[in-house]
Design a binder for these strands. Structure first.
Length: 820
RNA sequence: GCCGAGGUGGCGGAAUUGGCCUACGCGUGCGACUCAAAAUCGCAUGGGGCUUUGCCCCUUGUGGGUUCGAAUCCCACCCUCGGCACCA
């Protein structure tokens, strides 16, 4: 009986390794297909279901591509720097390098046991000097190109631990370790100028074969908006002005006050002696709020008057200048003109603080409710000579007038901010610059890379980046003037590591350069990228940005790194919630793999869920796939018996059952191929089950001497090929029993015969007023007239055909609908 | 709060994108095989009702709308999930 087991996995994994079956052949680069799963972060020691879900099924897709003739490049590696290893070290004293490397060893073994086609010769580990050397190189390229700069920026500061906190270490405004209230503190940080690429990144999206919702998220994240910067001269401060960005210059005459972000530099200039105390207190209050809190629109508005005034650029009116935390320094100019009549937040604010709320826009059509605040477009009023203009004309006219007077101009603003890449942490790639008292910031010469991360470092939080305490690391000489200088104590965001790893895979051993451009241009872009939707914006945007920079610098000849993208869903716990230790609903793959073998587990993941949506784990389902593989195995053995007892002279009889089998055979090939192509693995497997059922049915219903053994052999052969990507070890084993030549993965993917899908009769529904009343069988080529006749003659239909037929709708191959 | 996705039988999930709701599988029931059970093979199976060879009504989170026809499109609401720039 059932033979497939863990031992079969081991047998074929050994054979594959011995024969180098999955080694990428560079000579066939013209047929290459670069199939990439997002590499894994070695935080836990073991693979979880999510890994199997991502890697196992992407491997199935890649195996199909191999069978279709592609030279598949399927590498794997580890995103090995990052916060969890450092936190673990703080708690346990185990060095991040040690814990990370141990985890990687375990995970690599487990990934091998999965039986995927990963070619480990191309492995990449981001925390190894051989890799981060080139991450540092990348930093230097951006620096030279003027795309890396230093600026002050607020960070989460825990006064208790004396350290910078990640957002996830802040709970309800307090530090997760010591409970102290977290403050926003300005620190000098390195940035990459991703905003310079905002329009390119936006434009590049259109062409990509990515999920529309992901593109939409990226577009929203970039948040391009066209508008104007308008200058409001400060009253009594000659030459100084507030610059405010607005998309609604047509509402300028409705601006009754201005609001600055509390951190805005002009606040000090504007604040009067009388208001000083209040302003300082409010700034302090704002520093305790996170950005997300500040942006919550439902929160009650807060703010204080600075005591200062600015002039309206067109009326000369004096406008109060306030500060409020709903205005962010990081967006636009950090200042807004408040138009309470036509903006929800300004309206709320003005009501609360009793500021005037004039109307300057009226709806154009009467039936629209334009009670204030009216945020729609319309016709300008109470706007001097601009009154009567439409919003869109008005915007142009107003900005034009301002421009003539030097008080404003058209501007495009982005929600996207520059990428903050420095981290005050140990476990990352050191930033390769030197701070020299004479020369300032000096890049480390490329030939001195890698700038190695020292091992002997005390990484418990001490108020600075851990590396700052390591004199051995910090002390250096200026590469330019040779005087004593200090190194930069910060490390790079791990997103920098992962924003170019796909470029390193194909040339991972290169010690001269990050990659050979000529080679990489042939290997990339990635043909299919698969990874979680949680990376829809940040990782995927950063990787696109870096690729474009390298394109502009002449290192690669493509602008987009990932041609096609699929997000796998999430497998939830049996209770329908996300698996987590705290919920205690974690399902570990190990026990299942041990009991059933890798293929049963992989096949269940393929069959039991929608790949893009994921779903709750269900124990019962895995039995079903076990049973299915057993059923296939019994059939393969049964076929061997039939073959050895092949009746000498008996000639095969054609029948309905034969036609049915042929239909399921070829329909199975067609649909399984189409569905697997677009990652619809569950329906692909369903078609294989149907083919298996049809083989059983044929076997039970047709007497042995009348069986078409050739037909059975061909259909079975194709079934095994279809199944191979999803149950690779099992399929090799069956292929061997079947008498096929090693390896099944060197065979050709089957093709369907359209002839076999033509049916002599098709069934369509007959509706009356849109309700199904009967079904009829018609020849596939029947004319509308014929269909109508057959349908009308049905007794069941006639019952409902009372009165005159007003209309008849025929959907070919589907239904006919009478409207009475 | 903002951006994005989702909600279909007892269960996992299908549905050619506006055209027979529930493919395939699980579970359940019945039958065959068996001394018996398991395994296996086959058949049936959305819910309710009736005058039960058959017929009628209802059904895709909730409520409304558009249409000959809606799981699919529109409006409002409820719930779940992903992201929100220092988790990766």
């Amino acid at each position: 009986m059932a033979e497939y087991s863990r031992q079969v996995d081991a047998k074929w994994q050994r054979r594959w390794a011995e024969t180098g079956l999955y080694s990428f052949d560079p000579d066939r680069v013209d047929e290459k297909l670069y199939c990439l799963s997002m590499f894994s972060y070695p935080s836990g020691a073991k693979l979880h279901i999510g890994h199997w879900w991502n890697y196992g099924l992407t491997d199935s897709w890649a195996r199909m591509k191999r069978l279709q003739g592609y030279e598949v490049f399927e590498p794997m590696g580890f995103d090995a720097f990052g916060l969890p290893a450092e936190n673990y070290a703080i708690d346990t004293g185990i060095h991040p390098r040690e814990s990370t490397m141990t985890n990687i060893d375990t995970m690599r073994k487990q990934l091998q046991a999965m039986g995927a086609m990963f070619d480990w010769d191309y492995e990449v580990v981001t925390c190894e000097p051989g890799y981060y050397r080139w991450t540092q190189w990348l930093f230097l390229q951006l620096y030279r190109a003027g795309l890396a700069y230093r600026a002050k920026s607020p960070v989460n500061w825990c006064p208790g631990c004396n350290t910078v906190l990640a957002n996830e270490q802040v709970h309800d405004g307090s530090c997760e370790r010591c409970d102290a209230e977290v403050r926003q503190k300005n620190m000098t940080q390195w940035f990459f100028k991703i905003t310079e690429y905002a329009d390119d990144l936006l434009g590049g999206l259109d062409r990509l074969d990515w999920p529309e919702e992901t593109k939409r998220m990226q577009r929203n994240w970039i948040g391009r908006s066209e508008g104007a910067n308008i200058r409001f001269p400060l009253v009594g401060k000659q030459g100084e002005h507030i610059e405010a960005f607005t998309t609604r210059a047509d509402t300028l005459f409705g601006a009754t006050y201005l609001v600055l972000a509390p951190e805005h530099p002009l606040v000090d200039v504007l604040t009067t002696e009388k208001q000083k105390e209040e302003v300082i207190a409010y700034r302090d209050y704002a520093a305790s709020k996170s950005e997300r809190e500040r942006l919550a629109t439902e929160r009650e508005k807060t703010g204080v008057f600075t005591g200062g005034y600015a002039e309206h650029p067109l009326t000369g009116e004096h406008l109060q200048v306030w500060i409020a935390d709903y205005v962010l320094l990081s967006y636009g100019t950090g200042a807004i003109m408040a138009v309470p009549g036509h903006d929800e937040r300004d309206f709320e604010f003005a009501e609360k603080f009793d500021l005037p709320i004039p109307r300057v826009i009226a709806a154009r059509e009467d039936d629209i409710d334009d009670s204030l605040p009216y945020t729609g477009e319309g016709v300008m009023q109470n706007s001097k000579e601009f009154s009567g203009l439409t919003s869109s004309d008005g915007r142009q006219e107003v900005v034009g007038t301002l421009e003539e007077q030097g008080l404003g101009e058209e501007t495009i603003s982005y929600r996207l901010r520059d990428w903050l890449v420095s981290r005050q942490r140990y476990w990352g790639a050191p930033i390769p610059v030197v701070h020299c008292p004479h020369c300032g910031v000096v890049p480390v010469p490329e030939e001195q890379l890698p700038l190695t991360l020292p091992d002997e470092v005390d990484f418990t939080p001490e108020g600075t980046s851990p590396l700052a305490q390591c004199e051995e690391f910090m002390q250096t000489e200026c590469p330019e003037c040779g005087h004593k200088a200090r190194r930069d104590p910060d490390t790079l965001d791990t997103f920098v590591d992962s924003s170019w790893y796909f470029l390193r895979y194909p040339d991972n051993r290169n010690e001269e350069e990050p990659f050979d451009s000529g080679w990489i241009d042939r290997m990339l872009p990635v043909d299919q990228y698969v990874g979680g939707a949680e990376h829809a914006v940040m990782h995927l945007l950063y990787a696109r940005f870096i690729t474009r920079v390298l394109f502009d610098l002449g290192y690669v000849n493509f602008t987009e790194p990932f041609e096609a993208l699929v997000h796998q869903g999430v497998i939830l716990g049996p209770d329908g919630y996300k698996m987590s230790k705290s919920r205690g609903n974690i399902v570990s793959p190990d026990d299942y793999v041990e009991e059933y073998g890798s293929d049963v587990f992989r096949l269940y993941l393929a069959f039991g869920f929608n790949y893009v949506e994921g779903g709750a784990w269900d124990d019962a389902g895995i039995q079903a796939t076990r049973r299915f593989l057993d059923r296939v195995e019994r059939w393969v053995n049964r076929l061997q018996t039939l073959l050895s007892n092949r009746p000498g002279s008996g000639s095969p009889q054609r029948s309905e059952i034969t036609e049915e089998l042929e239909y399921y055979w070829h329909n199975g090939i067609r649909k399984a191929t189409e569905d697997a192509e677009v990652f619809q693995f569950n329906t692909a497997v369903a078609r294989m089950m149907e083919l298996t059922n049809a083989l059983y049915k044929y076997d039970t219903e047709i007497p042995d001497q009348e069986k078409d053994i050739q037909l059975l052999e061909n259909a079975t052969r194709d079934l095994l090929l279809l199944l191979a990507p999803f149950a690779p070890h099992f399929a090799e084993e069956m292929w061997e029993i079947f008498g096929g030549e090693y390896s099944i993965f060197d065979q050709q993917w089957p093709e369907h015969d359209p002839q076999k899908l033509v049916q002599s009769e098709i069934e369509i529904a007959v509706q009356v007023n849109g309700r199904v009343r009967d079904t009829i069988c018609i020849p596939p080529d029947a004319s509308e007239e014929e269909i109508r006749e057959i349908a009308e003659s049905s007794e069941r239909v006639q019952k409902y055909l009372t009165g005159e037929i007003k209309k008849t709708i025929v959907v070919p191959g589907r239904l006919i609908n009478f409207v009475v």
